[in-house]
Design a protein around this nucleic acid. Structure first.
Lengths: 226, 226
DNA sequence: ACCTGAACACCGTTCAAGT
DNA sequence: ACCTGAACACCGTTCAAGT
């Protein structure tokens, strides 16, 4: 019940030279990560961007890790999911595609999820919808966590790989190097890769998601899992 | 034809105080990454471990990135795959499980693959076997890269997540926090998670791999992939 | 010719000194 | 009471000086 301390004139908008609020800090951090990648986001760089000293940030955020968590929480809260689809197959595709689209556009987010292993309670609604769709489709309760993990990890992994594949990293060039050296050892790789050269793995997600969902959902022909 | 300079008594084994070869450097680096994680592997720390100056390392390795690539190459070359299985389903399971086992035991390796996006030509034999198995199973050539990417990314992603799940990161605790706050919003998550509390996602891989392979391979009922 | 110490431009964070 | 400069213990890498 003490008087509110944040009512100085210049602080109101949160944009004034000294209007350093938690929200302003987190928003600026997201902008840096978006523009220059998560590695470029240092406490010192962030302070520079905000015209303040590095130590001033620690007033609003206890840690670098706390800052990253707050960033994740911000975008997870802002995530809007498409309306619920009654058909489980469509529902899974729709929810996972919405998440995948965000991950595709925010490499730093994928980094926080995959590399730092972070998570925000704000994506729980999405999780519930996936669980519910699996349940509605007839997946037994005991199998749902495994199926969920399958779908989720693939979505994450695909997004992660996509951010690497863009500038055609060393991966592909090393592959072709090995194939060129002893082509007779890799007949199928050679045949397949010579056939379709314009595969950016970007188009894979749609197809693969369909395959996944088809594999995950029990078909009319019984539900034996193994 | 100058006299060979590396033949001082102590150098022979490559272990003596000054026996700093590329192989010794890379091996020591792998040991550090294995013991204390990839983040603990700094040029300075590595130099300390080898009783030499940080700059001496640059004689044998051009870069930190080159060092990491050499480490990856080392273990990829050492990887022994199980004998070829004629049945495509078994073949896929066997190859992917062999890779998964290595990734499970070498977190730093997963980091190089997933986070740094590195690859070594030395795993091409494994790739060829996966491609060949898919082809043998009747997957059309045009779909093989997508199916491969599906299987590979899941294997990677599962291993990555496993390394995080070990110490029960914030992820799960945040989930349960959200569920506790408004349990009525997450009925299915609540029901399913209360049922099986001992799921470590470690056991998922076996099951999920079977589901994946089942989904990937065309069934006897036609091969319409959409 | 080979190796390497000092130096440069960074990093997250603590701690005590500023206003 | 609030903010922050200097300092600590790191980092990868360049460059010139050592032997």
């Amino acid at each position: 019940m003490t008087a509110v301390c944040t009512s100085n004139r210049a602080t109101a908008g949160g944009r004034g030279r000294r209007g350093l609020s938690r929200e302003v800090v987190v928003t600026a951090a997201i902008q840096i990560a978006r523009r220059d990648g998560i590695d470029a986001l240092s406490m010192r760089r962030l302070a520079d961007e905000l015209d303040s000293a590095p130590m001033s940030l620690y007033r609003h955020v206890s840690d670098r890790e706390a800052l990253l968590l707050a960033m994740l929480d911000d975008v997870a809260t802002a995530l809007v999911l498409p309306p619920v689809h009654p058909d489980p197959t469509s529902e899974l595709s729709v929810v996972l595609r919405a998440i995948h689209t965000v991950l595709r556009n925010e490499p730093w987010l994928v980094h926080l999820l995959v590399v730092e292993g972070m998570a925000s309670p704000a994506i729980m609604p999405a999780v519930e919808r996936i669980f519910a769709a699996l349940s509605r489709a007839g997946v037994p309760d005991g199998d749902i966590p495994a199926m969920y993990s399958l779908l989720w990890h693939y979505t994450e992994g695909e997004a992660m790989a996509a951010h690497h594949d863009r500038p055609d990293t060393l991966a592909r060039s090393m592959f072709t190097a090995a194939v060129r050296e002893t082509p007779e050892s890799f007949p199928v790789v050679l045949r397949v890769s010579s056939q379709s050269a314009r595969d950016s793995s970007l188009d894979y997600f749609q197809t693969n998601l369909a395959v996944l969902v088809r594999g995950v959902l029990p078909r009319s022909t019984g539900g034996d899992l193994e």
